[in-house]
Structures are given as structure tokens and as C-alpha cells.
Design a protein around this nucleic acid. Structure first.
Lengths: 228, 228
DNA sequence: ATCAATTAGATCAAAATTGCGCTAATAAGG
DNA sequence: CCTTATTAGCGCAATTTTGATCTAATTGAT
């Protein structure tokens, strides 16, 4: 076992518990009277949670030995919400030594994104819910701050590229794409400007008649040369 | 002591050691035959370091109980290099369970910035050096990746605001400012475009004759309304 | 075949941005 | 006082970007 200059091993020093928390973001589809908007997955806290920890929270877990932060995130999303196959991105480490009543805990906040349809297919409805943003729910710890960071990060990514986090499936129209981008941005985007910004990173697919009047909208896939 | 659903306390679970590593960046001033350029502070590894860990590295330390990551960064900069009074910013957590021979260690990479003059005044020359970037030195762990992340982050901040990390002192000319921005950007900037982008966030100060021929350059301070 | 509905995207004017040449202002040197 | 050196920043043309209007293309309904 390695020792430091004082002759002590790492294990001799107090160490924090390390938790991961994840803002798993999605776009809640438009209804007849609402626009599409950002949402986040929350999970139900265990029944013995008390005080501010009661109710709902972002999915999270403690880091286990031998796993990476991303592996811990995936485990927490699967166990807590039934969601698999994610690629989370780190946001920030919340490190106030007094932030958790249970002891010294660092929390590494993450962002991940999944389409609403896939999320609805995967998640366990008994233990989880999708909440539209901004939300007025009270959440424990730094979870509101995590959601804000995640929103900012996602908005920045979507400013630069067409649907970088694959909220849309394999083929979509420019109107579909713009609706998703408007949901992420939280504001309306000008259709011509939007089209010009995105078109170079899109690949035209054969248009398909939609079974309704009017010229069928061009279908697009992502350009292979701009794979994330 | 709090327990989880399995009845065990946090202390019952293996926990990682958490380290902090910092890219303390500066701008190395121009000489008669070089342009100003980015540099980073390295510290000498302890003599018993072997293999890849020998030689030079970014300053770092293990997180002690009861301190925040920023406090640990400050402690490491002071102890290792004699540098005080910093406000580090988190970059990324390096979490490969096998990344350190000594055991399970997470490293939280940070960025901080200090003017060359102040850094030269503070640092211990015996234990530290400032290395121009890009550097061809071999560094241990993820230190090259940390420097790359720090460089990107700094470039992004400098794109948007005049000298956000206060590399310049209280008053400066537009030429001084542009030289610093060019050092950070790693490329030449067009003087009129640069001036137009920055001028609104600058506050004119009375010009002072410079003791050399020609119209004295306008002096600026940072506009109070755009305080970081 | 004609009409209505819907989309694609060209065209255009306006606005914004860029970079260069140049002059006025202001200093020190002679 | 004149000359040289240096900076500030204006004026301008070129380029880029934006957003609106409008027409052509293409569908389903009649």
C-alpha cells in the first residue's frame, strides 16, 4: 500500500461519501392547449425520508467502489426509475460539508436527456414522474440548482447543433426539429433563420406523403458527418 | 447516525479518496522576440514519486474532512506553491477507478487564473515553475487533459468579456487588453472589431502621458456595472 | 380538372458586422 | 515651431445575417 510523505496510507484519512444526482431531461410534447416544454424526471423518496427530503427528488445514489460516476448514474436511473442505456454528462460537484444530515457527502450533478416517448416506455410510473419546468415543487438538497444548471447546459448545446441529444427519432421534419428546439430554448425561433442554421447538419430523406392535404414536409435524418 | 434502507450507515460503505488538481493559468508576457502566451503553474513532485509521477505536475491535494473543494484547492496552492487568495472554478471530475496506483481516487479538476506578476511575486521558485502552453512535458494522471479543459474554458470566458479573470491590473490600454485576449485566444484579433466588442464594458480613465512620443493611449478600468 | 391546404425555399430589403484606410489629436524630439 | 511617432476612432465598402413576402410544388378533397 502506498503511503504519503507522512507515512500514512490513503485509508487513514477521512473520506467523503460521493453521491451522484441526475437531471434526466426530456421534452414534454405539445397538447392541444400547451406548447412542448422541458421536463425532468423525479423519483419518489423512500418512505422513511423526513423533512425536506420527503416527497420527490432527482434520481441519485452513492458511488460504489470500482464504478465510474457514469456507471453509478446508470445504476441509479435503472434502480430508481427503470431507465436504462444512458450517457450522462457531469455538471458540477456540490461540496458543502454540511449539505447532508447523514454525514460528509459530495454530490456530483449530472445531465442526461431522453425522448419523452422512450422515457414513458421505460420508467416505473409508481416511483417516478415527469415534471414540467420551471417547476414549483420543493426539492431536497441542491436539486433545483442542478435542474437550472442542466437547463442552461442543454440550451447551450441546442443553440449550436440540431437536436444533439436525439430527442427526435430517426427521421423528422424541420417543423418537428424547430418545435423541440423551441421547447429547449423556452422561446419561439424564427423559422427561416432556424432553417438556415440547421440545414447543413441535416441529411435529406425522401419525403413521404402524410395522408393529409398539402405538400408533404421534407424529412431529415442527422448528417453522418456531424455525429455527436 | 442515519442509515439507509438496508440499515447500514454511510461509513459502512467503501468511499473514494477525493483529490483536487488545479490548472492555475497565467499569461506569460511578451518578450522582444516572443508574443504573450498562456502558461500554467507546475509544482515539483515529492522526491519519492516514481515512474510517471516523477517530475512536475499540477498542484493538488486530497480533500480533508470539513473543507470544500475550493478550500482544498487554496490549501494546495499555498502549501505546494506559495500562492494565496484564489477563487477556483470546477472543471471536471476524473473518475477512472484505476487512475491512481495508491487506491481509489477521484480527482476534481479546477481552473484558476492569476497575473504573471502576482504569480511571480507569490510562488516559491524552488518548488514551482510556469510552463508555456502548449507544453511538451509529460505530466502524470489526467493533468494534460485538465490543462486542455482549462484552456477551452478560459478561451470561452475571454470571448465574451474584457479580461474577466483580471489578468490586467486596475488600469490598462486597449492594446494591453487585446494583447492579453490574443494570448488567451492563441490567435490575432482584429483591432477595430475587438474594440467594438469590448468598449461597452470598459470605463474610460483620464489618459496619462506615457513619456514616449505620440498620442498617449486612452486608459480603461472595468466598468462597475459589469463586475464579475 | 379544379380548388384548398400545406410546405420549401427563393428573393429581397434592412440591419448588423467586419476590416481597412485614413485623418485628427496628442505626445516627445530636434 | 516643425517633424515624427503613436493612438483614437470615423467613414466606408463589403459581407453576413435576419425576417418577411411570395411563388412553386405537391398533396387530398370535390
Amino acid at each position: 500500500m502506498f503511503t504519503d510523505v507522512d507515512g500514512r496510507a490513503l485509508a487513514d484519512f477521512p473520506r467523503p461519501s460521493v453521491a451522484v444526482d441526475t437531471a434526466l431531461m426530456t421534452v414534454i410534447p405539445a397538447t392541444h392547449d400547451t406548447l412542448a416544454r422541458l421536463g425532468v424526471l423525479l423519483v419518489r423518496r423512500p418512505p422513511q425520508s423526513v423533512g425536506a427530503a420527503a416527497g420527490w427528488a432527482l434520481p441519485g445514489t452513492f458511488l460504489h467502489e470500482g464504478e465510474t460516476l457514469a456507471e453509478a448514474v446508470r445504476r441509479s436511473l435503472e434502480v430508481k426509475a427503470g431507465v436504462t442505456g444512458r450517457e450522462p454528462q457531469q455538471l458540477h460537484v456540490f461540496d458543502d460539508p454540511a449539505r447532508d444530515d447523514r454525514g460528509w457527502v459530495l454530490s456530483v450533478a449530472h445531465l442526461d436527456v431522453l425522448s419523452f416517448v422512450d422515457l414513458e416506455l421505460l420508467r416505473k410510473p409508481a416511483n417516478s414522474r415527469i415534471v414540467a419546468l420551471p417547476s414549483r415543487l420543493r426539492l431536497p438538497y441542491d436539486h433545483l440548482a442542478i435542474i437550472d444548471l442542466a437547463t442552461e447546459r442543454l440550451r447551450r448545446e441546442y443553440r449550436a447543433h440540431p437536436d444533439p441529444r436525439r430527442l427526435l427519432h430517426e427521421s423528422f421534419t424541420i417543423a418537428d426539429l424547430r418545435a423541440v428546439h423551441e421547447a429547449v430554448a423556452g422561446r419561439e425561433l424564427q423559422k427561416d433563420t432556424f432553417r438556415r442554421l440547421m440545414i447543413d447538419e441535416l441529411e435529406s430523406l425522401p419525403a413521404a406523403a402524410e395522408g393529409r392535404r398539402g405538400r408533404p414536409a421534407q424529412l431529415f435524418g442527422r448528417s453522418a458527418r456531424h455525429a455527436e
